[in-house]
Write a protein that binds this DNA or RNA. Sequence first.
DNA 1: TTGAAAGCGCTAACAC
DNA 2: GTGTTAGCGCTTTCAA
Lengths: 345, 345
Amino acid sequence: MGVTIKDVAKEAKVSIATVSYVINNKGNVTDETQEKVLKAVKKLGYQPNLSARNLVGQKSNLIGVLIPNWGNADRLSESSHDNFNFDNPFYGNILNSIETLSTKEGYSILLIGSTITADKVKNVILQRDLDGLIIIGALPKLIDNLSEIKIPIVLIDSYTKQEEFYKVGIDDEYGGYIATKHLLDLGHKEIGLISGELIEDGVDMERFKGYKKALLERNLPIKEENICNVGVSMEGGYYGIEKLLKQNQQLTAIFSTADIMSMGIYKKLNELKYKIPEDISIVSFDNFPYTEFLHPSLSTVSQSVFLKGRRATELLIDLIAGDRVDKQTLTLPIKLIKRDSVKRL
Amino acid sequence: MGVTIKDVAKEAKVSIATVSYVINNKGNVTDETQEKVLKAVKKLGYQPNLSARNLVGQKSNLIGVLIPNWGNADRLSESSHDNFNFDNPFYGNILNSIETLSTKEGYSILLIGSTITADKVKNVILQRDLDGLIIIGALPKLIDNLSEIKIPIVLIDSYTKQEEFYKVGIDDEYGGYIATKHLLDLGHKEIGLISGELIEDGVDMERFKGYKKALLERNLPIKEENICNVGVSMEGGYYGIEKLLKQNQQLTAIFSTADIMSMGIYKKLNELKYKIPEDISIVSFDNFPYTEFLHPSLSTVSQSVFLKGRRATELLIDLIAGDRVDKQTLTLPIKLIKRDSVKRL
DNA sequence: TTGAAAGCGCTAACAC
DNA sequence: GTGTTAGCGCTTTCAA
């Protein structure tokens, strides 16, 4: 242990209580003593020990960020690192957003990844005495396990109905709807869907609902051979489009529920000598920066990952501060960005 | 505060010392008492408070991960989120790698981003009593500030000569060399370089050295008009290639020191109706998963971000454990991946 | 084999 | 306005 409050007290020739008062701006301290203490603090390079502070019942000023489905389950094996499903920039982006505001507000981020099991999350919360938790893309099993926890929890991209959680997200069903409708408006009728696994309360399920809604609105059938559920990765898109193309040669357009999959779709179509959008149109979801840099640039539903992180953090910090927060669920705006991957039929 | 050791002691009808012995596997405890205690622990859902543990001089089991140049400095402004320079997947990937092993070894990750100033890093280390620190792409100023810190520090991608730090990286000069040599071997002579800012002890500087070395070996001049330093981002590449093309119409090839910039280069070349590799060849650096999915697929120097994170974490954990570590600097292998973005002249 | 008690660094109630 | 002190939850020495 380094410099403690005792050392400062000795140096400034005051009691440790006085030092505590000064560094916490509490109690009435003379300007003179204040200055003495501050000088000692500076001279010794004193930094209060947060463990000790935490122990006397203060906040930990620690926010946990949990990313349950980050990377592959088997990534602990070194030999598998070539398949490391690392590529979705979403997680890095949102982490950056969360960390930035948290730091500004005096919180530190405890990063909790996906190897941790649902019941161990609770342990970490208890052990580290987290002030709050943000969960990105929470799975139902995880959430069930956490409902008895008494710290504020904000869920990003979850559609759970459990009322004890605050939520930040977008209207994924609407996103799926406008993406599909865009295709329909341009005359497409045989529209394939490539999405991640349809998990209960997950975003892909909602985007799928939007897809169905748009088709049903035009009295178009939902054909099973037009739908393919894959991993949310480039590989997923790569193999998904191949499968779909085999199952239905009439396909003129694809709605891909994630940009990362669209990368793989592009590659496969290139290999197959399909031209985008001449032979097949694509609408995607996310509007990651790189979509503009693809050739042709990708039409996609735009969401702000930055704002998702920012709003979730704001909400959590308010909750920690005990500020009454009126809305349990915050839905951020999205819009369709029309670029060059779609043609009129 | 929740369940404490006292509660467990009461429940098990033993002293708190005995509980402590049991949960730490210390002292000699009868199987019988052990069982009593364990049962009480389970019944009450007890989790030891790490702050308290830490206070009695134990390890904090916290590893800091510092990402100094993550995103834009001005990203605190909401209006700037469209420019959010978020897109380099490198940081998310390496974080994932570090977090995975750390968790497995019983450490938690404290994420420290780029808004934090150099002197504040020291405060966090002291306040949270970090057991160790990993710094990704450390700037000299930051490192100078940290040299007096007594916890183990592992630097990823830094070429500082300061001996108190352990380092994990690749041979960036060699990478720049083989990339450029590949181009030279195929007959290219006018080779442009698009790289990030040439910062002291940084990777771009080394890759640039490799570029120079390869050219000099063939008695080719290093032309200033062939070199462009930009931000390591898609935009950087986008504007960099435009500038280079204007400055020298004879260019037949580009060495881009980061895949993320190559994305921008592809876009600009597409807009300009340059064909890759027919009109211009490109060799890049990183081998991010998406490079294989670009069209044409990108020839690039491959490094394992996964291993960088993994080895750095292993090293740090050994250091924390007090295990003598022989090598101060670990250099991981790289190799050139030849794909379709380069043609023989 | 188990327990009592000191003490880690700090805050806050209370006394002066 | 400043100091004394109890106590946060835990580990560990020492005694029994």
